[in-house]
Design a protein around this nucleic acid. Structure first.
Lengths: 103, 103
DNA sequence: AAACTATTTAAATATTTAACTAATTACATA
DNA sequence: TATGTAATTAGTTAAATATTTAAATAGTTT
């Protein structure tokens, strides 16, 4: 499996992930938002797939890509680890954001 | 400022960050845990510094590096964004972990 | 001041990565 | 079956990155 950290390090690939948060999309749909070729996008999708950050579903001549949330949750584990298993910082951060939202 | 995503994409640099979670360390101390040279470590630290993931404190002939938590919290914002501002997944994840800890 | 210690910076090299064009695969439809 | 469409794979090139050795900087000690 490819490194999810390397996968997520690229600006375009992070944009792709954000693009998928509202539901699955085909490479052609995603490609319209970028300047580079479909071939380049295809390689980006491969990197994300190899890192298990996205899943691919085939339907006829189309392929649908969607977020694979589990793997990205795994990345948060690192931050958790970095903050000493305490989780306090992360939790406070999350709850703070939540307050802001409901204000 | 350098990209914190690129900074954190490297395995060695993530290890360095974890090494710092218990408190500040000098480059020489950190270097003992790696196979590469002190010069290589110095460049890794520069990348982390440029990404504001660590801070440097000078004292005599030593330099002490420490975690800069604020910036790494910023990275979590991306995951939050990816999960649709809902925060539910992240929150559930955090609380789940917390439960496990106290079990 | 000379020698030593801690660390960074510079220059060179090797590896990895991102992008392109062109070719290929796979499916759909006329 | 020929043509079109969707997407990937291959081969190439250019740029970025990681590492090394050697030199430089800065502070300490004798």
């Amino acid at each position: 499996m490819g490194s999810p950290w390397k996968a997520i390090a690229d600006d375009s690939r992070r944009q792709i992930l954000l693009m998928l948060k509202d539901g699955e999309k085909t490479p052609s749909q995603i490609a319209t938002h970028f300047d580079f070729t479909l071939a380049a996008l295809s390689t980006h999708l491969k990197v994300l797939r190899d890192a298990s950050l996205v899943s691919e579903r085939k339907e006829g001549q189309n392929r649908f890509y969607s977020l694979n949330q589990k793997q990205s949750l795994g990345l948060v584990k690192f931050f958790e680890l970095m903050w000493g298993y305490k989780l306090d910082s992360l939790k406070e951060y999350v709850e703070n954001k939540e307050k802001k939202k409901t204000q």
